[in-house]
Design a protein around this nucleic acid. Structure first.
Length: 592
RNA sequence: GGGGACGUGGUGCAGUUGGUUUAGCAUGCCGGACUGUCACUCCGGUGGCCGCGAGUUCGAGUCUCGUCGUCCCCGCCA
């Protein structure tokens, strides 16, 4: 075999005259009758190779080449004629005059386009993923991912973190997402769980004295999928001992700064802005605010005080709120049809309805004008400092619904009006998350982060068991352009506080022992104060590449129904296999 | 668990209110012409039971129901 001396991306005018060998895939062939041009491709780039008419034997061979054949060519690097230079190609100054051609492997006609940008359906791309990964886009994505991972590793290694692998076959954790289960053959009827995160193990590593740990690790959650959610995904997981919140935040910031510089040559200004959870919810209606544009939510409940508008007065009486966003220059542009679309959008997020005010010159037109006193509209106009062509979108209801629906609407308007600058990377911290969240389903408080998060101690004293929903936690998320990149917390290392938290969560001694006994035992033998963070690598890479779907930065992803179109996983298994695992299927599943 | 969009030659799409049709376009693929192309160009050709199943109808790519698949979203995801 002719072994390559160069890749398809590196030859320039400087190599002119050299005898070289290239290996690669036939990207494209242009047969002009006498002369044949072929573009050869590998992951480094493309190079034009030329079959000249006088080499009759070669020409015959070259005529038989088709797309995606794997070939080797030996030839001489030639400078191209001035008018034949291809400026869009890195190797466009040269071409290779072929002296010898070896066909290493023929290809059938591929089912998807590889050499040109096209809108191939995801279904085809996923089914023939190995071909899709040949495309320029996917090669760029995976190579960027690799670069980002290297940068992260370099950072942690330089900072003396230790990379420790934690088990993939582990114990089911009851709090949080649904676990993927793996049946045990040796202990029939028992199950391992795949980790949702190495949370408990990394805390144990702190107990063991590995005061700086990191791992780039697969995690698993058996929940429904989304554009930014896969059942298996990769986390950048790290934990530190003898630290406080500031230290974890500082370390994360420096890591992000390095990664952005290394991968994108973007300078991130430190320290990153911070926003308390309450402020984020209040102004952006989200715990992961997109701060690339303003259009903040404003509370206009006061303007409706004493109104006879029954729907609103009832909401206010029930401690609800009325909030508004102002869309500048949209009053005329937003026709009845668009307003309907916008209202329907808000309703998806639980809004009961959408009120609006349109300012056109001196005319202030409210969709709810008939139901309300003129002063109310006047007050809103004053409070929001409305000007010509302003459109005000207003939602009333309970605080949570208003925040969520108006926050989602803010983003939707942002998209419609193209207010998000794609070249901007707005990183920020959202801090002081609530420690507890009431779960209707379970009829108890559950930990919003996890039960090992350290509550703000003053809050714990002040609100305690009476108003646990007011207790904040030393938990923080890092947010990039409205996406949660990751988050972490300072953990509890004091057994008395841990017990109080368990009590508040109504996890009794029995359950504690059963579920987290090993951790609580470990904490008896000298545990340093510690805290850490975990970042979603897939999200991070996709954001840095401007891809809006994490499938495009994962080599072999799953569909939204958690299947793999290439391998057909998950699939049924032999009866015998099941027997060894002590598993019986019910009739319904057997038939399907 | 729920809502929405889509499914038509290998691929990406069009196909009007159900009927004048032999399901069209682009690209690919095959054959021919062409010595400076780079998504070469030009000429000719090949290729589809319209995802699958049932129903309504004289007649279904088009309407209805079911089912499968893909994508987006709500719930869910500490």
């Amino acid at each position: 075999m002719l072994k390559r001396t160069h890749t398809c991306g590196e030859l320039t005018a400087k190599n002119a005259g050299e005898e070289i060998i290239l290996n690669g895939w036939v990207d494209h062939r242009r047969d002009l009758g006498g002369i044949i041009f072929t573009t050869l491709r590998d992951r480094y780039g493309t190079t034009q190779i030329v079959f000249n008419p006088e080499k009759t034997e070669l020409i015959e061979k070259a005529k038989a080449l088709s797309g995606e054949d794997v070939i080797a060519v030996r030839g001489k690097v030639m400078s191209r004629p001035e008018d034949a230079i291809n400026k869009r190609q890195a190797t466009g100054e040269i071409e290779v005059d072929v002296d010898d051609l070896e066909i290493l492997s023929k290809s059938e006609t591929p089912p998807i386009y590889i050499n040109i940008e096209s809108d191939t359906s995801e279904e085809m791309r996923l089914k023939y993923r190995y071909l899709d990964l040949r495309t320029k886009r996917m090669q760029r994505n995976l190579m960027m991912r690799s670069r980002i991972v290297k940068s992260i590793r370099d950072f942690f290694e330089d900072e003396k973190f230790v990379d420790v692998e934690t088990p993939v076959l582990t114990k089911s954790t009851p709090e949080g997402a649904r676990d993927y289960l793996v049946p045990s053959r040796i202990k029939g009827g028992s199950f391992y769980a795949l980790p949702q995160s190495p949370q408990l193990f990394k805390q144990l590593l702190m107990v063991s004295g590995y005061d700086k740990y990191y791992q780039i690790v697969k995690c698993f959650r058996d929940e429904d999928l989304r554009a930014d959610r896969q059942p298996e995904f990769t986390q950048v997981d790290y934990e530190m001992s003898f630290v406080e919140e500031e230290d974890v935040i500082d370390c994360t910031e420096r890591m992000l700064k390095k990664v952005f510089k290394d991968a994108l040559d973007v300078d991130v200004q430190l320290p990153l802005p911070r926003m308390a959870y309450d402020e984020a919810m209040d102004k952006y209606g989200s715990d992961k605010p997109d701060t690339r544009f303003e259009m903040l939510m404003q509370d206009v409940t006061g303007c409706f005080e004493g109104t006879s508008f029954e729907i609103i007065s009832n909401i206010i009486a029930a401690e609800g709120v009325v909030k508004a966003i102002v869309v500048e220059g949209a009053a005329t542009k937003y026709s009845r049809k668009i307003m309907k679309e916008v209202e329907d959008f808000a309703k998806i997020y639980g809004a009961k309805g959408l009120m609006n005010i349109k300012v056109k010159g001196d005319d202030v037109k409210a969709s709810f004008a008939k139901a309300v006193e003129p002063e109310v509209i006047e007050k809103i106009k004053t409070q929001l400092e409305l000007k010509d062509e302003d459109l005000v979108l207003i939602i009333a209801g309970d605080r949570k619904t208003v925040n969520v629906s108006l926050g989602a609407l803010r983003l939707e308007i942002g998209r419609r009006e193209e207010l998000m600058d794609k070249n901007k990377y707005n990183l920020l911290w959202v801090t002081r998350f609530p420690m507890f969240e009431y779960s209707e389903e379970e009829d108890r408080y559950v930990a919003q982060h996890h039960p090992f998060t350290l509550p703000v101690l003053e809050d714990l004293e002040k609100y305690g068991e009476k108003e646990p929903y007011k207790i904040k936690a030393l938990a923080y998320d890092v947010v990039l352009n409205g996406w949660e990149l990751g988050g972490g917390s300072i953990r509890i290392h004091q057994s008395d506080i841990q017990e109080r938290v368990f009590d508040l969560l109504k996890i009794d001694r029995e359950a504690q022992k059963e579920k987290f006994g090993f951790l609580l035992d470990a904490f008896k033998y000298g545990v340093p104060p510690h805290g850490g963070c975990a970042l979603g690598l897939d999200r991070m890479v996709s954001l840095m590449l401007g891809e809006d779907n994490i499938r495009d930065v994962i080599a072999f992803p799953k569909t939204t129904s958690a299947t793999c179109l290439m391998t057909s996983a998950p699939s049924s298994v032999d009866e015998e296999q099941l027997q060894k695992l002590s598993i019986k299927l019910d009739k319904q599943q057997k038939n399907s």
